[in-house]
Computed example of a mutant assay.
Amino acid sequence: MTNHDEAADVRPLTLAWASRHLEAGERIVRTEALQGGITAEMRRLTIGMREGGTRYLVLRSFVNVEHAEDWLNREADALTLLTGTGVPAPGLVAVDPTAAHCEYPSLLMTHLAGRIVLDEEGLETRVPLLARQLVAIHALRPAERPREYATLTTADTVVTPKAADSAAWAAAINVIRKPAPPYQGRFLHRDFQPGNVLFDVPPSPAGPRITGVVDWAATSWGPADLDVAHCSTNLALLHGPAWGLRFAEAYEEAGGVLSAAASERLYWQARDALACSEEVQVVSQPWREAGRTELTTPAVAERLNAYVTALMDALS
């Protein structure tokens, strides 16, 4: 077996475990580290097939991650549920959530074509595609619901950026001090954002299309507003506040239904934006690794401040 680079090495027990889940006569001939993962090590495995040719699998391993067993069980359940639904998600091959066979808790899944696209160019075309895909996810009605959503951020844990609009942030923090609004439950991805969506972007005049949605470890049941708010925050940080505000409109244009009252929508929008305040550095690092080098931690914090201010201004 040849490795793309030293960082791509798969540990011996994990390699043996993955090999046991191949078809007869197949073998792993190459491993490559994949960029973009925040909590897990991601690798693409090139599989040499018995009759010649190759195919790919993706290995996801959690190294020193709290609650890894829970995350992997949830993702395995979600991938199983999504099979045959039309939502372009990976297929589950195998999972070892307790590291009974691998060095670290791991999941093996099919590989999806396409790539993550974080560029400014073509954004006006991709946003409606993102909205339509999220509407399709929310339309799923599984026989067994995933667990109820969870939010960890509180009004007391918000980290206000330096040079922030103190009045806007104080107002936003007061918004999330209130009880959560009532909602109609939907199947949520819970981390739906450009970094978890794969695109095929062919040369003009053919337009882009979504080829996959990945990272289903946080799948939950809750308000559609929460998924929309999360994607909105990410778009605001990647491309500016106006795109964060635009996504909710695109979601409704695609047939999605959000809370009727502006104050209820604001609750979810503010909650997600403020949650990001605690992890700006963690969120921005994979974007820089993907080529958006201008998105330094201070630059992203500045955009987050502008987005929170825009949310509060939109309500007034």
Results as ranks from 00 to 15, higher is better:
Met1Gly: 15
Asp9Lys: 10
Val10Trp: 02
Ala18His: 04
Glu23Gly: 06
Arg27Leu: 12
Glu32His: 01
Ala40Lys: 09
Met42Leu: 15
Met42His: 14
Gly52Asn: 10
Gly53Thr: 10
Val58Pro: 13
Arg60His: 02
Ser61Arg: 14
His67Gly: 04
Asn73Met: 08
Ala76Pro: 14
Leu79Asp: 12
Leu82Phe: 11
Gly84Lys: 09
Tyr104Ser: 08
Pro105Val: 09
Gly114Leu: 06
Arg115Cys: 07
Glu121Phe: 03
Gly122Val: 04
Leu123Met: 08
Arg126Ser: 07
Pro128Asn: 10
Ala139Trp: 01
Leu152Gln: 08
Val159Phe: 00
Ala168Gln: 03
Ile173Phe: 04
Asn174Arg: 13
Ile176Tyr: 05
Pro179Phe: 11
Pro181Met: 04
Pro181Arg: 01
Pro182Val: 01
Asn196Val: 03
Pro205Trp: 06
Gly207Arg: 12
Ile210Asp: 05
Ala218Lys: 02
Ala229Val: 07
Ser232Leu: 12
Asn234Trp: 04
Leu245Glu: 12
Tyr251Val: 04
Leu258Glu: 01
Leu258Phe: 03
Ser259Val: 04
Ala261Phe: 04
Arg265Val: 12
Leu266Asn: 03
Ala270Phe: 08
Glu278Met: 12
Glu294Ile: 00
Thr297Cys: 13
Val300Met: 13
Glu302Pro: 01
Arg303Met: 04
Tyr307Thr: 12
Met312His: 00
Met312Ile: 03
